[in-house]
Design a protein around this nucleic acid. Sequence first.
DNA 1: TAGCGCGCTATTATTATCATAGCAAGGGGC
DNA 2: GCCCCTTGCTATGATAATAATAGCGCGCTA
Lengths: 92, 92
Amino acid sequence: MALFDLLGRRWVMGILWTLSEQGPCTFRALQSLCETISPAVLNARLKELQAAGFVRKSSDGYLVTDLGLEVYEALRPLSNVSKVWAKALGEG
Amino acid sequence: MALFDLLGRRWVMGILWTLSEQGPCTFRALQSLCETISPAVLNARLKELQAAGFVRKSSDGYLVTDLGLEVYEALRPLSNVSKVWAKALGEG
DNA sequence: TAGCGCGCTATTATTATCATAGCAAGGGGC
DNA sequence: GCCCCTTGCTATGATAATAATAGCGCGCTA
């Protein structure tokens, strides 16, 4: 349940997803990929994710750890669900 | 990404998880299972989840739809991740 | 040394969430 | 009919989270 508490915060899943798909990103690159995130929140989330061991810094910028990659893998099925969901909403 | 926006709100994943595992719940039962959620937020989340088609009302109270169950199934791998994560945090 | 991009902080306004109290409606017993 | 209880939900004021914008300090390069 602590995991839900961490992931259930704005942008957290989006940041993990973006970093996993795009690879290492600089702070500003992440900021522009997330489009509307404010730097204060991005910085806070990056600190939380680093404390959790899901993300770390390297010379190329921020990247996901092996542990963070597991979260991403666990989250990937949601991609299919979102397609089914979009279709269902369109029909309903 | 709209799915992340919906799920990335406080209590949403917890509510889906609880309803999926416990079966149909009344409003007050859900409230006590979530322990610290306030009724205003619970009601708001239930409305959002119903609008999204993940939850619906029945004579036994609130329950997850087939679509909501898919989200739950997609979320279940997180349970394993959380164990690995807890261990990693304990070691690190 | 002046300009540039980068990581990040500061600040204020807006929104979300918490915590508590309580209302309105329905059911059972008398 | 009336009382009492549970249930679903709303109202309210306090507190915390997020948004939006501006800009600082640093390293690099010319």
